[in-house]
Design a protein around this nucleic acid. Sequence first.
DNA 1: ATTACATGTAAATATAATTGTTACAGGTAA
DNA 2: TTACCTGTAACAATTATATTTACATGTAAT
Lengths: 150, 150
Amino acid sequence: MSISSRFAVGIHILALIEINKDGVSTSDFIAGSVNTNPAVIRKIMGMLKNAGLVKVRPGIAGAQLAKNLSDITLLDVYKAVNVVQEKELFSIHENPNPDCPVGNNIQDAIIPLFENAQTALEKALGHITIEDVVRDLIDKENFENKKRSN
Amino acid sequence: MSISSRFAVGIHILALIEINKDGVSTSDFIAGSVNTNPAVIRKIMGMLKNAGLVKVRPGIAGAQLAKNLSDITLLDVYKAVNVVQEKELFSIHENPNPDCPVGNNIQDAIIPLFENAQTALEKALGHITIEDVVRDLIDKENFENKKRSN
DNA sequence: ATTACATGTAAATATAATTGTTACAGGTAA
DNA sequence: TTACCTGTAACAATTATATTTACATGTAAT
């Protein structure tokens, strides 16, 4: 099992809008960078829009960030693109046997433990911003270019 | 997306073996408590066995724990039942465009962030033992019985 | 040895999620 | 009106999950 790449693509989209801020970031343009179909980008973009992370309007080419780079955390993106439902990172078997002391209580016993672990994950995502990602991308690209010019 | 319930079932199995330690925990018996097919239990049990968490032998009825309760963490179970591959909790889109500064570096930028979050999750699981779960199960069952006798 | 019953495991199925594709309705501006 | 964009739905291909069925293999008691 793996969490949908919509999350990674969402991060990609936001970083690309920033780095291409002097250009026009259409779904076609973004799809070319992500290497997927423009409709996929538009769908994810719609989710980012609903979450208040980007501004984009029907008929008008290009998307813009709706917040400061440093005010968008990975957790915001993760929630926006809906890759994991609240409290449902881990699934639990349904209908354990209520006539068994274990079956009767296992769900109540496990649920808070799973929620705890999920919270730890999400907290970690909340500490990183898109600004961090963009900075890293620029550093890496500069380093690449420097290597190439040698 | 959700992490397979094999994890929750694995925890259920181990707790049940402990609580039924004076009885014989066959795959049929366990399946009755989990409320699933015995073949499912045998498959998961095989994984727990490979991970050194339970002792079970072909032809001989019943499973036993292979370690102390307090020496089995939820992380051990999680790894045993193979619900999330190493470093692959989050998936990343493949083949982003190498001719774009974002596409060219996004994977390297994101991977360590994702690994970090996954580690936070797993660390949380490492702090809980099956002993904790069993204690909670017993508490909950006692409380249930007390209510019923009133 | 045969019987009874357990585990180990593979194959087949149903269900659901992910990703990509195509198509088209509707918005905007030159 | 034309050209191009976003928004969205329908469809297919792929993959993972969960369950069921079946059977080979191991063990022990009669």
